[in-house]
């Protein structure tokens, strides 16, 4: 997309930064769907029909316990595969 502000050379690092911000939003969406889906998908039944895993109601176990583990896994994957090492200072030099 060309707009009237880009008649200068844009910092190439911003392309990477923008992509990583989008990945972060993506993970948040996955997080929300997982959290919401299991909580209300399994938790809306009457309590006497609940199943239990390790003593906890299944909705809670999947939504909050497994959900936390899964999201931690996804974040590790996101950082290892999706995020790039780039210098943050001007031209990568002059550290403060």
């Amino acid at each position: 997309m060309k707009d009237r502000y880009t008649d200068f050379k844009e910092d190439p690092r911003f392309k990477i930064a923008n992509r990583e911000a989008l990945i972060g939003c993506g993970v948040a969406v996955i997080n929300f769907i997982w959290w919401f889906g299991f909580a209300y998908g399994l938790g809306s039944k009457p309590v006497d029909t609940y199943t239990y895993i390790f003593g906890l109601p299944a909705w809670f176990f999947y939504s909050c316990i497994v959900g936390t583990v899964v999201i931690i896994g996804v974040v590790i994957l996101m950082v290892k595969k999706g995020f790039k090492d780039i210098p943050l200072n001007h031209e990568g030099g002059d550290d403060l």
């Binding site: 690092r13 911003f14 990477i16 930064a17 923008n18 990583e20 911000a21 990945i23 972060g24 939003c25 993970v27 948040a28 974040v75 996101m78 780039i86 943050l88």
Partner: peptide
């Protein structure tokens, strides 16, 4: 919050 803030504000 563990990952969102840092990845949105992030490097930019």
């Amino acid at each position: 919050t563990g990952y969102f803030t840092l990845s949105i504000l992030g490097k930019k």
